[in-house]
Simulated assay, not measured.
Amino acid sequence: MKILSERSLMMDLGSFYIPDKSKSSPMGDDAHFISKHHQTIGLADGVAGWAKQGIDGGEYARQLMDNCVTTLYAEDKEIVYPQMVLEEAYVNTNVEGSSTACIITLTDEYLNVINVGDSGFMLFRNGNMIYKSSIQQHFFNCPCQLGKSSRCDDPSIAEELILGVRAGDVVVVGTDGLFDNVFEREMEMVIRVLREEGCLEPQLLAKLLAELALENSLIRSGDSPYTIAALMEGKFRSGGKPDDITVIVARIVPPMDIL
């Protein structure tokens, strides 16, 4: 594994999680990990519908992410391949349930991404959103999801992506609890304000975006990204969408800015 000082760019990382208090499980259904050593991050959103069968929707997501970390440290290779990490973690996750998944690693000046479902990421440059990952879903509000039951998907359907980045870029990774409730322009505004104030720290940005998503999710009327997406499918909704909210922020920096 390359030592940190040998990397051309690095991810300065922070995260914030707000579980949906309306759910029976206090831990919520989301899970995530950050491995600064491997410059790799991941998150998963357990499918809440399993609760109708008495199954904790978050257990699959938590075990999947735990197995991703186990795989990273078991291999400990110089280059991390998110597809291989996800495949190995999937094989070793055998509890009932299902989840989305997004794993991102930084290799030199490129993000290597594997994504399943409606979790995902956005890339911001100079305060402007320049890339947004696509959503994988079978139909509206039914994302592709990893699991071992006959109704679930496997990693072969995952979208793989390699994306170039520059120093100063900001990557915002989240579950749908973020993206269903916060518009791109709102994220841009928060990032620009922090840049202007000289306090664009990943942990702070993750916290502010998660809290904004929570605030918007409780609004009972008006538009949200979720309501607009629903309208495009011929379904009328209004207001925000309460959900678990996970945000991971990666600020792309030269190694000396962290060491």
Rank of each mutant, 00 (worst) to 15 (best):
L146F: 07
F183W: 00
S8F: 08
F139I: 05
E109P: 08
D154S: 03
E59W: 12
F236V: 13
M10R: 09
I248K: 00
C68R: 07
N94P: 06
T227R: 00
S35K: 09
L161R: 09
S99D: 01
C68T: 03
P225T: 02
D29G: 15
C144Y: 15
A89E: 00
I18T: 04
S217I: 00
C152H: 12
T100P: 00
S238R: 13
G222N: 02
M11Q: 15
K77G: 07
L13W: 06
L209M: 14
I79N: 11
V80Y: 02
K23H: 11
E87N: 13
A31K: 11
N216I: 05
D257A: 13
L106M: 08
R125Y: 09
E211G: 01
F121V: 06
M256A: 15
H138V: 02
L146A: 07
S24M: 02
K77R: 12
A167R: 15
G54E: 04
E160N: 09
A74D: 04
G198R: 08
K21F: 05
E211D: 05
Q39E: 08
Q39W: 06
L231N: 07
A31R: 05
G234I: 04
P255L: 12
G240A: 02
Q203V: 11
E59C: 00
W50N: 08
T105I: 01
L72F: 04
V69R: 00
S22E: 12
T40G: 02
Y110M: 14
N216F: 00
K148Q: 13
E109F: 04
S150Q: 13
I18N: 04
M84P: 08
G46M: 05
G49F: 09
L86Y: 03
D257V: 11
N126Y: 15
G58F: 06
D223S: 09
D180G: 01
Y17W: 15
Y110K: 10
E75I: 04
L43P: 00
E215R: 10
P225W: 01
D257G: 12
K36D: 10
D76V: 01
V193H: 08
E196Y: 10
Y90T: 01
P254D: 06
V116E: 05
S149W: 05
S221E: 11
W50C: 03
E96I: 07
E87D: 10
R125H: 07
V171T: 03
Y110D: 13
D12N: 15
R251E: 08
L106I: 05
D118T: 06
P82H: 02
E87W: 07
M11F: 14
M256F: 14
A51C: 06
E159Q: 14
A250D: 12
I114G: 02
K132D: 07
N94F: 15
D45H: 07
G164C: 10
Y110I: 15
S150C: 11
I18D: 08
I3P: 05
L43Y: 11
D12R: 12
I228M: 06
V95R: 09
S224E: 01
L123Q: 14
P19H: 12
G120R: 03
A206Q: 03
D243P: 00
I104A: 09
A213T: 01
L209N: 01
G57T: 09
R185G: 07
G239K: 11
R237V: 14
P242G: 10
L178M: 10
T107E: 10
I191Y: 04
I34C: 05
E201Y: 12
D244A: 00
D243M: 04
S25Q: 13
V171E: 01
F121C: 03
C102E: 06
I258E: 14
